[in-house]
Design a protein around this nucleic acid. Structure first.
Length: 237
DNA sequence: AATCGAAGCAACCGCGACTTA
DNA sequence: CTAAGTCGCGGTTGCTTCGAT
């Protein structure tokens, strides 16, 4: 069946979001929720595609987002989950509160992948790379092995064919089996006690004020998306 | 100080899954 | 049952920043 483009590409704005657009989107969603993403830009007065709005909200504006680099524990969890689930970032992200699939995917591609390769571990199969002796593993990966061995997990047979994991052959039953075997639901969800955001909407509102506040315009918000939070003392990289 | 390549990340694209008429 | 519409996911791109030379 033919698909229409999700929006009129000639009339929608693309590229980095401005502070003003963020404000509009936040105000609209807080006030109305997002019943239908396709309608959001129109109702919110944005010249954006609904898809773009959803992405912006999920990856950047959502109140429950945690920011900054992944902690060692989170990184470890991502590795463990990836070994079981492959590149199903949204499922992995669902086990890390406050983290988005996009964020985890980026972190995997830029940090974890290299780290594993450096250690002689194939980031796709999570098996040792052929003809390569692993360097001294970092504590974090050591703990991975220990953890998985403790739980008695066989290492990642599902990723023997990496391509297959990209096909989103999303069989719920397979996930169920995986989760049943690992008992993810209750045990694995990562809770970072240093993160005190949930439940504190005031905190989030303050963050938003800061986010879209006067200083942002001066700095040029277009790029602020990637750098703004580094300005917060607690979020320094 | 200038240049260049690498790294990091936000955003886009295309497709499959799901829903609705 | 089927076609059309919408959503969400994963891969990829492109821009900005950073570090080395």
């Amino acid at each position: 069946m033919g698909r229409q483009p999700c929006c009129d590409k000639l009339r929608v704005k693309r590229g980095p979001w401005t502070a003003d657009e963020d404000k509009k989107l936040i105000a609209f969603i807080l006030g109305n929720g997002h019943c239908c993403w396709r309608a959001v830009p129109k109702l919110a007065g944005l010249q954006r595609c609904g898809k773009s709005c959803r992405l912006r909200w999920t990856n950047y504006l959502r109140p429950d987002l945690k920011r900054g680099l992944l902690t060692d524990a989170e990184e470890q969890l991502v590795i463990d989950l990836h070994a079981r689930l492959g590149n199903r970032w949204s499922k992995i992200a669902s086990k890390l509160p406050g983290r988005t699939d996009n964020e985890i995917k980026n972190h995997w591609n830029t940090h974890i992948k290299k780290k594993l390769q450096k250690m002689g571990i194939d980031p796709v199969t999570h098996n040792p790379l052929p003809n390569q002796t692993a360097e001294t593993p970092s504590p974090s990966v050591n703990s991975s092995v220990t953890k998985e061995q403790n739980i008695g997990i066989e290492h990642a047979p599902i990723n023997a064919n990496p391509q297959s994991s990209n096909c989103s052959a999303d069989s719920g039953s397979r996930d169920d089996l995986l989760f049943a075997g690992y008992q993810w639901d209750d045990d694995v969800t990562f809770v970072d006690t240093s993160w005190s955001f949930p439940g504190s909407i005031e905190t989030w509102e303050r963050s938003l004020e800061w986010l879209v506040g006067s200083g942002m315009g001066d700095l040029g918000f277009e790029r602020a998306a990637s750098t703004d939070f580094a300005d917060e003392p607690s979020q320094l990289k």
